[in-house]
Design a protein around this nucleic acid. Structure first.
Ligand SMILES: NC(=O)c1ccc[n+]([C@@H]2O[C@H](COP(=O)([O-])OP(=O)(O)OC[C@H]3O[C@@H](n4cnc5c(N)ncnc54)[C@H](O)[C@@H]3O)[C@@H](O)[C@H]2O)c1
Ligand SMILES: NC(=O)c1ccc[n+]([C@@H]2O[C@H](COP(=O)([O-])OP(=O)(O)OC[C@H]3O[C@@H](n4cnc5c(N)ncnc54)[C@H](O)[C@@H]3O)[C@@H](O)[C@H]2O)c1
Lengths: 214, 214
DNA sequence: TATACTATGTGCTTGTGATAACAAGAGCAA
DNA sequence: TTGCTCTTGTTATCACAAGCACATAGTATA
């Protein structure tokens, strides 16, 4: 039987769901659950069980037929594949309202850890929020290189974003999550993605209004 | 020639892009640009021009062959179709760090307007943030009904979310955007969507790590 | 009025993801 | 061992979205 280890390409949708599966598995683990079925994961994540099995099968065979999946071993297998081992260190630029909300949020979430934050406001520099220290933007390159950080979250006003992006790329950042909705100029090997609450709300407005019109 | 007004179903992907198209059009309008081509929109939104034309064609024929689209009339046509006319009033629950960042963000964005915010903290109630007044959670039903608000954003701790969701649904809310990552229990006619910065960051970690392994 | 030109709108192909249905494998009991 | 049950892993099918490529319909110019 051909094993699917690292099939040429894994669908982005699958990768997105993997995030939810690991959360779900962690939550089962914390409840002391040892063994689960694809159906259990599916219910908790709001997808179909066949989707769960298909997704996992992109990486290999981890279950036991007739039984299910061992929670702990499935978790550590996924951690091994993604090389993250549950510890994902990221940087954050802009310790304003939004930035500090994200830092606090990350302390409640056991996966992503913001290990360094940056701001240009002297009043904020050298403060600590939980375990996260706030540095000057001048130190971005030093700190990013020192801690070998590969992913950064940007939560500053749009006008300054590209300038900061250039610094981040120079420092070796390989993926950027921007909360400002302006196009970013980056080399091909740097992943960029955007998150915006209000765009999502607008989308919901469109969806509602068209629903009535059909 | 059959006009496509309200073709049976419009793809979700199209609807998501419509949000970006309208922003793009507004930005062109503000720059004083009168006439544009699908190529212009495409470049600004990072998609292909054929996608733009296909998307618009789901709603009808708005362009002039050999010329392009009239910015202003295309905008008002879309506003007419979506019945939003550029004014999208939403409510927000939880005026903490995240909530107040979103309210501020909405003042910088000319589309979605947070016309009412709610909190349970007495110190925050009756304050005003920009033009947004903060009410007590006890007033949710009254205010939502009074202003006929159909969409709500939830930015409170996960533990209290379902309780608030029930109140919102009872008050007539038809779409909920939650920033807490717990499954919501709602009737079938209520749309639910989630936004989470850290899930997106985890996804980027997975993407990066698998990129190296292929 | 004719001709060249330009960008739209759309039919069609291609690729990708979702879903269902089923075969295969593991455990268990007699 | 044989047969039964249970859940995985996989295959085959369906649905949908992306993108090409061109006919179409409008403008501009002479
Ligand atoms: N995508 C979303 O869903 C979303 C939601 C809310 C806000 N936003 C956006 O996020 C940004 C921040 O919002 P906020 O409410 O936290 O604003 P804020 O004013 O509270 O905070 C901004 C912070 O960034 C710092 N800063 C500014 N320029 C900087 C620079 N060049 N280098 C380093 N630090 C810099 C400031 O000192 C401040 O601490 C805004 O532009 C807003 O539009 C996006
Ligand atoms: N999805 C994301 O990207 C994201 C990012 C950051 C934070 N969060 C989540 O958003 C939530 C809020 O974060 P924050 O940093 O603003 O926290 P916060 O403590 O600053 O604010 C929470 C606010 O909600 C109010 N509140 C609490 N319970 C309430 C209730 N039952 N009814 C009405 N109001 C209530 C509080 O009074 C407070 O004003 C947290 O649970 C956090 O995990 C999500």
């Amino acid at each position: 039987m051909m094993k699917n280890y690292f099939k040429s390409v894994i669908p982005e949708t699958t990768l997105r769901r993997m995030v939810y599966y690991t959360r779900c598995l962690n939550s089962f683990k914390n409840e002391g659950v040892k063994l689960i079925q694809s159906e259990d994961i599916a219910k908790k994540c709001g997808v179909k069980s066949s989707v769960v099995r298909k997704d996992l099968s992109y990486f290999g065979e981890f279950g036991v037929r007739g039984k299910g999946y061992d929670v702990e071993s499935l978790l550590s297998t996924i951690n091994g594949i993604t090389n993250t081992f549950g510890k994902m260190n990221a940087a954050l630029i802009g310790v304003g309202k939004l930035g500090s909300a994200i830092i606090k949020h990350s302390t409640e979430n056991f996966n992503v850890k913001i290990i360094a934050a940056f701001d240009k406001d002297k009043k904020k520099i050298n403060k600590e929020i939980g375990e996260t220290k706030v540095y000057s933007v001048k130190d971005i390159e030093n700190i990013i290189k020192k801690y070998k950080i590969k992913i950064a979250i940007i939560a500053i006003p749009p006008s300054d974003v590209q300038e900061i992006v250039d610094i981040l790329v120079k420092a070796g950042i390989k993926a950027i999550l921007s909360l400002a909705l302006i196009p970013l100029n980056v080399p091909d090997d740097v992943e960029v993605s955007f998150v915006d609450v209000l765009s999502e709300v607008e989308f919901l407005f469109y969806k509602l209004s068209l629903r009535r019109n059909i």
